[in-house]
């Protein structure tokens, strides 16, 4: 932050910003207080090397971790009307949008991509928490509709990865209307007999949790992720209740029957690939990645794509992937 940040309009900020130097070389783990060097943290997909705490992962990195060889193709999302409410609080909504756009280099809080997972073509819609808290307005709704339509078109499974505080207030009732809208979108995938997976990441709350995010055929959650409808602070202040230990965390939802499994970040890709394969290929497995053990009679293609840099190809012996730590 310097005088330029405050003075120069958001669009120009992007030009004058020095991008590659991280603000802090050291990050303190919010769970255990351990100081982690930024390179180590990045290498470990933003997991605390000390306690395993899952910190938020930038969305591009998330996508790279999921797809085979880290390769995927993003799709252009349809434009939506800009600032339909002409909303203004202490700042104009259009300015907040521009800020978020220049900060993230993205148009809104969702990215839709497709590529192969275990050789199977898959569509992923992932929220970008860095963009206005991943809040859902018509643009995000449009992204989910586009993702669902693409999945139907490609006869591909759909994976949605929310990371969102909820509906975007600045688009008012139109944000609320994205709840039914996204519900219809994911229903289209289900109606086609295609699997719809949700990977709940930190945080998934409000209008996002109370619509498509809770409607997955199979629902995974990252360890420690905050997932719920009402915010913990809202509950505390309005109801004056003391919140139980671990309230609204992924493990709490698992215990209360709200998610199928809590899966550590490094096991997410394997778990999803296995689920996709189980549901999409009920007669015979068709996984081409990871490399099948020699002589394994599973009909996998002969030449699997080589593993690329930056992804962790799962060990060959675990073609079916390790068990999720918390079970189903």
């Amino acid at each position: 932050m310097n005088w330029l940040t405050n003075l120069v309009r958001p669009k120009f900020q992007q030009l004058v910003r020095t991008r590659d130097v991280p603000d802090n070389l050291w990050t303190k783990c919010p769970a255990c207080g351990h100081m982690i060097f930024h390179k180590e943290l990045d290498k470990n997909a933003r997991l605390c090397s000390h306690c395993g705490h899952h910190m938020r992962l930038p969305v591009e990195r998330r996508l790279a971790m999921l797809f085979d060889n880290g390769e995927f193709e993003r799709i252009e999302l349809p434009k939506v009307p800009l600032d339909p409410l002409k909303f203004r609080d202490e700042k104009r909504y259009t300015d907040r949008l521009k800020d978020a756009q220049s900060k993230t280099g993205e148009k809104d809080a969702i990215i839709v991509a497709h590529g192969r997972m275990g050789g199977i073509n898959t569509v992923v819609a992932a929220f970008n928490f860095a963009f206005m808290g991943g809040s859902m307005g018509p643009a995000v709704g449009e992204g989910l509709v586009a993702a669902a339509e693409l999945a139907v078109l490609q006869e591909a499974p759909l994976i949605v990865i929310p990371a969102s505080g909820g509906a975007r207030m600045q688009e008012g009732i139109l944000s609320l209307m994205q709840m039914p809208r996204t519900t219809i979108a994911v229903d289209k995938v289900k109606e086609k007999g295609l699997p719809y997976f949700v990977l709940l990441t930190d945080p998934t709350t409000g209008g996002v949790s109370a619509s498509f995010a809770m409607l997955g055929d199979v629902t995974l959650a990252e360890p420690g992720a905050v997932i719920g409808f009402a915010g913990a602070r809202v509950i505390e202040t309005t109801i004056r209740e003391t919140l139980p230990e671990g309230f609204q965390r992924a493990e709490y939802l698992l215990d209360h029957g709200m998610v199928d499994m809590v899966v550590p970040r490094h096991e997410v890709r394997d778990t999803l690939i296995r689920l996709i394969d189980l549901l999409m290929n009920p007669r015979q497995s068709a996984i081409v990645l990871p490399l099948p053990a020699p002589g394994r009679p599973d009909g996998a293609p002969e030449v699997p794509p080589p593993p690329g840099p930056g992804v962790q190809p799962p060990p060959p012996a675990e073609a079916a992937g390790p068990e999720p730590t918390s079970g189903g």
Partner: peptide
């Protein structure tokens, strides 16, 4: 609004609302 309380959350307030919306639409 929907009740913001511990027991509502533990019984799946978000899921219940999502399913209600889905049912309305279906």
């Amino acid at each position: 609004g929907a009740y913001p309380g511990v027991e509502a959350e533990e019984r799946g307030q978000a899921e219940a609302i999502a399913r209600a919306i889905e049912t309305c639409l279906d």
